[in-house]
């Protein structure tokens, strides 16, 4: 388990000043912590593609923004990836809740996207990491390095209960 405050401190140290997205219950604690943060502002977007637009505009203004979304949003977000973030080679860090896995199957609305989440990211050509447990800093270091080197979108998958 990873403490929300530790992740936010890490992101703040890595020069992120803004965050945006659409909530998932997997990120409830993280969003509460963000609300209290003096270092990182959160913009509540109405859709995931809108959140990509906000983050890309912020980057064009020479500042860094990360996204927090549910994996259902990976379906909504497509054109914002392919004709904006990826097309203009804008680096973008996205935390994506990994819903629809076995323990989550009481929520049938997440099952289909849960089954195809990694296939969708592979189809978009977006590198991703499943962040669980103690080596989370190393995973984020690696993801941010890749994001900067390739000027690319990178996704961090987060399963239930990983961020507290």
């Amino acid at each position: 388990m990873i403490k929300s405050i530790d992740i936010l401190n890490y992101l703040s140290e890595n020069n992120f000043e803004l965050s945006t997205g659409v909530p998932c219950s997997y990120f409830k604690e993280l969003l509460i912590e963000l609300d209290k943060s003096a270092d990182i502002q959160y913009i509540a977007a109405t859709r995931e593609d809108e959140a990509v637009g906000i983050a890309c505009g912020y980057y064009l203004g020479k500042k860094n923004c990360f996204l927090i979304i549910q994996n259902s949003g990976l379906a909504t977000i497509g054109d914002a990836f392919t004709s904006l973030a990826q097309l203009y080679e804008i680096p973008l860090l996205i935390f994506v809740s990994y819903r629809g896995l076995e323990p989550d199957k009481t929520f049938p609305e997440h099952v289909i996207m849960g089954n195809v989440t990694e296939a969708v990211l592979n189809a978009y050509g977006i590198p991703y990491w499943n962040m669980k447990g103690e080596n989370w800093r190393k995973i984020l270091d690696e993801a941010l390095e890749r994001m900067k080197e390739d000027s690319s979108v990178v996704c961090i998958l987060v399963e239930k209960g990983v961020i507290i």
Partner: peptide, 18 residues
């Protein structure tokens, strides 16, 4: 070039950054 529907969001992000 694309991202139809997003110019206002991009403008919002840019306005916050600058």
């Amino acid at each position: 070039r694309g991202s139809m529907g997003l110019p206002m969001s991009i403008g919002l992000g840019l306005a916050l950054a600058q």
